Computed example of a mutant assay.
Amino acid sequence: MNFPAQEELSDRRKRSLRHARWLEIGTIFYNVTEAGISVTAGLLSGSPALVSFGFDAAVEAISASVLFWRLVSEESGVAQSVLSRRTKVTLYVLSLVFLLLGGFILYESIEKLASQKQPDFSLVGVVILCLSLIVNPMLSFRKRRVGKKLDSHELIMDSREQLICLYMTVVVLAGLLLNKYLGWWWADPIAALLIVPYVLIQAWKAFRKAQNAGH
């Protein structure tokens, strides 16, 4: 990646940086709210898929915060070498949080399958999932578009994280509804397990990009 110095930043790039920064601020606020509601609803209903969804939202808030720091760094005009190091840090953090999320989901899903405990239905959980079906595609599309304008691997990775959340939303919502209307108690933990491979793939991709950042 090539990061121009502050005095060389074009007006177009400055606008794109501001746009990206506000997208990350919106992501932080929405996902903190989403995480609190989802985890609480999941714990009360005994749904590992809903709890996993909430923790994914927390991961998104963390990665958005780190990426916000990276974007502000470029806007403030720090040296290219510093930007390169911060890009590496951002991508390594994304890789780590993806990995931790995958491990947590795997543990929760297997534990629920082993106990064969049927989760209760959560109307609050369904509402937040339906809201996420609207919000996350919008955020992903905008981040990817701005990321391409800025030639920012980390912003594009962040847009993919929004797609993970969209994928999770569909899977978790299906699990909750199958459990509610067909009595398939195992649909909820299985829904959570289906998320794990994609999360781990994204962890590996972020790690590889971190290794190559600045080369």
Rank of each mutant, 00 (worst) to 15 (best):
M1S: 08
M1T: 01
N2G: 09
P4A: 14
Q6S: 14
E8K: 10
S10A: 09
K14W: 03
R15L: 14
R18K: 05
R18W: 06
H19L: 14
H19M: 12
A20D: 06
R21W: 06
R21A: 15
R21P: 00
R21G: 07
E24N: 12
E24V: 06
I25C: 08
T27H: 03
I28E: 07
F29N: 02
Y30C: 09
Y30K: 01
N31S: 08
V32F: 14
V32R: 01
T33F: 11
G36D: 03
G36Q: 02
I37R: 04
I37L: 15
T40H: 03
A41V: 09
G42S: 10
L43G: 05
L44H: 05
G46F: 03
G46W: 04
P48G: 05
S52G: 13
G54A: 10
F55R: 02
F55Q: 02
A57N: 03
A58P: 00
A58R: 01
V59N: 08
E60W: 02
A61V: 06
A61Y: 11
S63L: 04
S63K: 02
A64R: 00
L67C: 13
L67H: 12
W69R: 06
E74L: 15
G77Q: 09
A79R: 06
Q80G: 04
S81R: 03
V82Y: 06
L83D: 08
R85E: 13
R86P: 05
T90M: 12
L91R: 00
Y92V: 15
Y92H: 14
S95I: 10
L100G: 09
L101Q: 10
G102M: 03
G103Y: 07
I105E: 13
S109H: 04
I110W: 07
Q116S: 14
Q116H: 09
S122P: 07
S122N: 08
S122C: 14
L123H: 08
V124F: 15
V127I: 15
C130W: 11
L131S: 12
L131A: 15
L131P: 01
S132G: 15
I134D: 11
I134P: 06
N136P: 00
M138C: 10
S140R: 10
K143S: 09
R144W: 13
V146A: 12
G147V: 08
G147C: 12
K149L: 15
E154I: 11
L155C: 09
L155N: 01
M157K: 02
S159Y: 07
S159R: 02
R160M: 11
E161G: 11
E161R: 02
E161C: 10
E161I: 11
Q162L: 08
I164D: 04
I164R: 01
I164W: 01
C165T: 15
L166I: 14
Y167L: 14
M168Y: 01
M168P: 00
V170R: 05
A174C: 11
G175E: 05
L176Y: 07
L177K: 04
L177H: 10
K180L: 13
G183E: 06
G183A: 13
W184A: 12
W184D: 06
W185K: 10
A187T: 13
D188F: 09
P189T: 05
A191M: 07
L193M: 12
L193A: 07
L193E: 05
L194A: 05
V196N: 03
Y198H: 06
V199K: 02
L200T: 03
A203K: 00
A203T: 04
A203Y: 02
W204V: 08
W204F: 12
K205M: 08
A210S: 12
N212G: 10
H215K: 06
